[in-house]
Amino acid sequence: MKRKAVLRVNAKLLIPLILLFALYVQFHGDFGPGGGFQAGVIFGSGFILYAIIFGVEVARRVAPAWLVRIGLASGVLLYAGVGVVGMLLGSNYLDYSVLAHDPVHGQHLGILLIEFGVGLTVACSMITIFFIFAGQRPGGEGR
């Protein structure tokens, strides 16, 4: 799709908006509909749109495989780590009330952190899966 000028210009306009919207959904999830899962999917689809329009190799340069894989693992680790921090501060696993002086603030901070972990993992797994599917040779060997 090197020559589709309309598509390329429109995609350039749309992709920042999609990514921005994903971040809005991520951090506004406490107040309206939204949260880590949706934000991750939207963020991932922004990257997938970029990869479809500009080619997978270009997109791989923007999000190298090692970076995406690190993100994939660190999302889960962040989630589990928040639980462990709560435990070290003298409470139950995944109890966020002790993360700040005030239980409600602690809950808020904990939810923000683990939603970020969820979003990171979901976005990175969507990008990984798409890149892998797109990186295959069409048709396969087919013995």
């Binding site: 406490d30 939204g34 966020y96 809950q107 808020h108 904990g110 939810i111 939603e115």
Partner: peptide
């Protein structure tokens, strides 16, 4: 928990 979105607070907390 705080957030007005109950789904979020049930999901995360």
């Amino acid at each position: 928990v705080g957030p007005p979105n109950i789904v979020t607070s049930v999901l995360a907390s």
